[in-house]
C-alpha cells in the first residue's frame, strides 16, 4: 500500500446510459449517452477542490458514482479506499453529501428531529452527538430555528440545516452538489465561511460542484473542469487563468476614429468608433505597449483588463478563446 492514498482516486471512470428515442410510430432507436467519458483524477486528504462544468457535463453523474448511487460502466473508482458501488453503506458512514437542490430533512418535522433521526441513522453515540450538534449549531447559527418545522425554513436556513445533517457523523470527505444555489448574499457568505473553516481547521476534504464563481474564487485552491464527460482542466486557479486566459486586453480610446493600430505582436480584436480592443499576450510588457501607442497616436483613455474567472470558464465551455471580448469575437 502507498503511504498516502488519495481520498478519491478515479481512473478512467466512465458512465454511459442507454436512451431510447422514438424514431417512428412504433419504432424506438437506442442510443448510448456517455455522461462521463473516461475521467481520471486524485483528490488528496485535506484538499478543497472545485468540480466545475456546464449543465449536463457530467458533474452530478460523477457525484452519484462517488457516493455509490450509480455504478461506473468502466474504470476504477476508490473513495476513502472503498469501491463506492459495492460498499455503499460502509462508505456512507465515512462521507457526507449535500445535494443542494434536494433535502435530507423531513419537511413536516422540526429541524431538531431530523438531526436526531440522522444520529440514529449513522449510529453516533449520544455524547459525540451532543458535542457535534452544539458545535454545528454555533458555527451555522442554527439555534433560532432548531425547533421550526423544515417546511417553514428559508432556503438559506434549510441549506445550513442540510449541511449540519451531512456533518453530524463527522465525515472525512464532504461532497457538495451546488450548495449555494439560490442563496442570498448573506447566506452564501455564511456557508462559504463555514466551509472554509471546516477545511482549514478540521482538515475535512471537500469536493464542491457549483456554478457560483464566487464560491470558486473564495474557496477552491484547485479546480477540475469537466465538459462533455471529459476532464478539460485540472489544476490551480492561477494555472487555469494562465492556460486559457493568460492574455489580457487593452481597451484604447483614441482622439478620433481610425484604422486599427499597428504594433508588433499585438492583435486588434475589434474597433468601434475611436475605441479599439487589443489582445495583449502575457509575454508582452503592457507599459511598453502603452508608451508605443502614446508616441504614435493621440490617446484619450486606456484601460487594462485581466480575464476574470467567469469569462475564462465561459470561454472554455464554449470551446473558443475569444471570451474576453464580451462574447463577441471579431469577425475575420
Amino acid at each position: 500500500m502507498r503511504a498516502e492514498p488519495g481520498m478519491i482516486e478515479a481512473e478512467d471512470v466512465a458512465k454511459s446510459f442507454t436512451v431510447r428515442k422514438r424514431s417512428g410510430r412504433l419504432r424506438r432507436t437506442r442510443t448510448t449517452l456517455d455522461a462521463v467519458d473516461g475521467v481520471s483524477f486524485t483528490v488528496r486528504r485535506g484538499e478543497f477542490v472545485g468540480y466545475l462544468g456546464p449543465n449536463g457535463a457530467g458533474k452530478s453523474t460523477t457525484i452519484k458514482m462517488l457516493t455509490g448511487i450509480l455504478t461506473p460502466s468502466s474504470g476504477s473508482l476508490r473513495v476513502c479506499g472503498l469501491d463506492p458501488a459495492r460498499r455503499r453503506t460502509e462508505l456512507a458512514r465515512r462521507i457526507g453529501v449535500v445535494f443542494g437542490q434536494r433535502t435530507t430533512l423531513w419537511w413536516d418535522l422540526p429541524l431538531r428531529d431530523s438531526l436526531t433521526l440522522i444520529r440514529r441513522l449513522y449510529r453516533v453515540d449520544a455524547a459525540a452527538h451532543r458535542t457535534r450538534l452544539a458545535e454545528l449549531t454555533a458555527l451555522l447559527e442554527l439555534e433560532p430555528f432548531l425547533d421550526t418545522p423544515v417546511r417553514q425554513l428559508s432556503l438559506g436556513q434549510r441549506m445550513r440545516g442540510d449541511l449540519a445533517a451531512a456533518l453530524l457523523h463527522g465525515p472525512e470527505l464532504l461532497v457538495l452538489d451546488e450548495p449555494t444555489i439560490g442563496l442570498d448574499v448573506v447566506s452564501k457568505a455564511t456557508v462559504r465561511g463555514f466551509l472554509e473553516r471546516l477545511n482549514t481547521e478540521r482538515g475535512t476534504t471537500i469536493l464542491l460542484t457549483t456554478h457560483d464563481l464566487g464560491d470558486i474564487e473564495r474557496l477552491c485552491r484547485r479546480v477540475m473542469i469537466i465538459d462533455h464527460g471529459r476532464l478539460a482542466f485540472d489544476g490551480g486557479l492561477d494555472r487555469l487563468r494562465a492556460t486559457v486566459g493568460a492574455d489580457r486586453m487593452l481597451v484604447v480610446e483614441l482622439a478620433r476614429p481610425g484604422p486599427p493600430v499597428v504594433l508588433d505582436g499585438i492583435e486588434v480584436l475589434r474597433t468601434e468608433g475611436p475605441r479599439q480592443w487589443l489582445r495583449l499576450p502575457n509575454a508582452v510588457n503592457a507599459a511598453a505597449v502603452v508608451s508605443a501607442l502614446a508616441e504614435r497616436h493621440e490617446v484619450r483613455d486606456i484601460s487594462l483588463r485581466e480575464a476574470d474567472i467567469e469569462e475564462v470558464l465561459a470561454g472554455l465551455y464554449r470551446g473558443d478563446h475569444a471570451y474576453w471580448c464580451s462574447g463577441r469575437p471579431v469577425a475575420p
Binding site: G68, I69, T89, E90, A92, R93, F99, R102, L121
Partner: peptide, 12 residues
C-alpha cells in the same frame, strides 16, 4: 423528481 438519490445514498 430525482429526490430518490437521497434515499439511495442513505446507509440503509
Amino acid at each position: 423528481n430525482g429526490d430518490v438519490a437521497i434515499d439511495l445514498y442513505r446507509p440503509t
